[in-house]
Design a protein around this nucleic acid. Structure first.
Length: 136
DNA sequence: TAGCTGACTCCAT
DNA sequence: AATGGAGCCAGCT
């Protein structure tokens, strides 16, 4: 079995030609990459910015399939995405929960229990920032 | 094809 | 702040 391989520019090659990367997932990953260090965004927000309003759940799905080596040569900071209530969406004390909390705190994002103070840490991009970061 | 499921949201308690 | 229900939507079986 060949692992899913996608070149840096997203072109499928060789044996994986029939295994495709969902293009919508790719857009979601790309959008997540524009969240700045030390900030967080919620699933619905990412869906909107990716041009997929109403598909917050799809963002969760996409984050669960982030390529290990990152996307287009850059890592995908999945841990900067939390739910609209400002909480980490994993069960408290689960392995993923701890990993996400650790990554956030490492960036200076304060996490109390499972909650982040959106008021202080939510990313509120301006138009210029979006045009600069997104290519679609 | 038909359900089922979920890293979601919104709204009412 | 916590909890529960309904709505939602696409991927998976």
């Amino acid at each position: 079995m060949v692992a899913s391989v996608v070149s840096a520019d997203g072109v499928r090659t060789g044996a994986d030609v029939n295994l495709s990367v969902n293009p919508l997932y790719a857009r979601i990953w790309q959008t997540v990459q524009t969240i700045p260090y030390g900030k967080v965004a919620c699933y619905g927000q990412i869906a909107d910015l990716a041009g997929l309003p109403g598909r917050a759940r799809m963002v969760g799905k996409a984050l669960g399939k982030v390529p290990e080596g990152g996307w287009k040569g850059r890592s995908v900071p999945w841990f900067r995405v939390i739910n609209s209530q400002g909480k980490i969406s994993f069960a408290v004390s689960s392995e993923y929960f701890e990993r996400q909390r650790g990554c956030l705190q490492e960036e200076g994002v304060m996490v109390i229990g499972c909650r982040v103070k959106l008021k202080d840490f939510q990313w509120l991009p301006d138009l210029g920032e979006l045009l600069f970061g997104l290519e679609f």
